[in-house]
Nucleic acid binder design. Sequence first.
DNA 1: CGTTAAGCGAGACGGTACGTCTTGTCTTCGT
DNA 2: ACGAAGACAAGACGTACCGTCTCGCTTAACG
Lengths: 191, 191, 191, 191
Amino acid sequence: MPDQSRRNPQVHQAILDATWQLLVDGGWPAVSVDAIAAQAGVGKRTIYRWWPNKNAVALEAFLARARSTPPLGNPVGLAEALRAHARHFVDLYVGTRLGTLLRELIGAAQQDPELGAALREHWFEPRREPLRALITDGDADLVLDLVFAPLHYRLLTGHAPIDHSFADRVVDAALLARSNPRESRSQADRM
Amino acid sequence: MPDQSRRNPQVHQAILDATWQLLVDGGWPAVSVDAIAAQAGVGKRTIYRWWPNKNAVALEAFLARARSTPPLGNPVGLAEALRAHARHFVDLYVGTRLGTLLRELIGAAQQDPELGAALREHWFEPRREPLRALITDGDADLVLDLVFAPLHYRLLTGHAPIDHSFADRVVDAALLARSNPRESRSQADRM
Amino acid sequence: MPDQSRRNPQVHQAILDATWQLLVDGGWPAVSVDAIAAQAGVGKRTIYRWWPNKNAVALEAFLARARSTPPLGNPVGLAEALRAHARHFVDLYVGTRLGTLLRELIGAAQQDPELGAALREHWFEPRREPLRALITDGDADLVLDLVFAPLHYRLLTGHAPIDHSFADRVVDAALLARSNPRESRSQADRM
Amino acid sequence: MPDQSRRNPQVHQAILDATWQLLVDGGWPAVSVDAIAAQAGVGKRTIYRWWPNKNAVALEAFLARARSTPPLGNPVGLAEALRAHARHFVDLYVGTRLGTLLRELIGAAQQDPELGAALREHWFEPRREPLRALITDGDADLVLDLVFAPLHYRLLTGHAPIDHSFADRVVDAALLARSNPRESRSQADRM
DNA sequence: CGTTAAGCGAGACGGTACGTCTTGTCTTCGT
DNA sequence: ACGAAGACAAGACGTACCGTCTCGCTTAACG
């Protein structure tokens, strides 16, 4: 990987802008390295110099638009924080270009382990981490998954709608699970 | 779509077998229509005559191997059924070829709506439907999502391990949510 | 190399025509496999299926135009035949598109041994062979080189003009050499 | 073109040496401006400052190695001089790195008129000029071509071997042609 | 003696061509 | 008539090279 300091920031931005424009105009299928290069007025080599493939470029273009995402100006408590997060997710990623792109990135990551790792590092974890800090007792990752998983699951499979009501009920379930850890069933069939 | 009755069942099977073999040998990237045709000793035309694209072929090959999946010989109750299902999922789809393929199919479906619909119809719904029947009160789809979503979410993102313990705790959370619907928080901030 | 009989002759011809057209419009630098494919309305793959590279395509396009070359309806004798050939060369290849292409092909052959072999087989040898048969005494290849070499040498280096007069004098020299083999110098300094 | 006096002679030499080394190691295909720059430990800019392109660099590297070429310590006569030249050519340029490079330079010149002109000026003409002075009667350039053309022609086309015997016979033919100008045929068919 | 203009190493950049790959359609055979 | 074989158009892939350019550093000439 070449020296980052020699990178031309205008070119960098032009590539991300071009990628986003292609996404807006033609969706994921319109994104190819050739197309990005043409749209950005850039040589393909320049793209491959800084990114391993188009997935990485698309991820960065996505993150640049999504970075402003996490809300939570004044977190009063876990419940409020989770609810805000869940509703925020619904607002930003359900039925939006950003949401479609998120779906497609997660999809592409199933065949691109590097993209998967980058998504975890730059997308999932930055959103989980501040919330994890609020969960002092119980399995924080379980609770977070109980919130995030249903939202993403429906986003990816589309088997049922996603709205604020669903977000709220998912958060309720997660909170219940935290406060009431596994008394509901016998220990007998534990594996 | 041509006359189903004229279809040569041996050719049909050879294509599915070849697809599976390619999957086993080289993973999803090794699967191309050309490769399937060569492996099966079949013309590409024959494949396109019966399937719209390679995703559909792979889905069918997957379903053929996965069909035996649903357990539950004698369902004693919702809790048992959910737990059995969740653990079954862990056994069959975590760290296995089948699980990788499931990931890749869901991934491919993000850009192939037909594949998404087929997955819902032939994979997700057949597994949800018998369980849904057991959930008499509350939002059945919510409860099912609380079980299935975390499992699939971790399968797709790989951000945390999936084992029987995780499966059990997910089921506990879902059961809790069913029996204790949203009393835990005020109605005030409902949207 | 695939089965020749399955080749689509229209596609074959379209590729040669496109190549020639590019040559006429933009000269050798305008010829690229991409450009040929675009001009012919053909996939690049189709070109690479039948030719190893653009040199081979250009050679075939050249040969198709040059095939009609060898004259000599009624060869009366070696002298007449050589003179006709030499003048014919001047007429067809000096200052013409065909001549420029011949130069460029010979030039390209310096880095493409396959092209060199193809040129020898399909261009040089077919022109030498009928003349060689007329040279019954002496070293036929030497005589032929004494005719052809100066013409090609000037074509390639451009250090002096090529006209009918030059062609005639070259032929004279070659005929002299044949009829008067090496009496002109002592055997002493033979190596 | 910048000020020659400020040129760093070590850099100049390093570039020529690097070019030659690349030629020796990988042949003409290994020579690229990038490769020369890397091999010489020099910026590409420095190369383009002093040469128009890689052909010019290669030509200079060639000339530096070939400069010692012309023999002829004590020219006793035209016949001796021509014979010495022709045999010298065989010794130095047939089956040698230098000969291959000469072929490739002449080849490249077919698409690079500047290289062609430079070759004529710095390679061909310096070798022809001293010999031309010895040819007092007849067409000197014709005689010289009758010697040089067959040697280069076989070098470029490879259709027949080049050895001392061939060199001698070519010289004989040229001498014959000089002493016996065109009496051998009628003036009738002159054009 | 300092400043200033160039040479220079390094390498990013736009552009173009390469040769390979895959997709989905279409054609040619043989059975 | 079906199926194998595979040609075909389209176009993306990732690499190579070209020739221009922009950085800093050093180095010589000139003020």
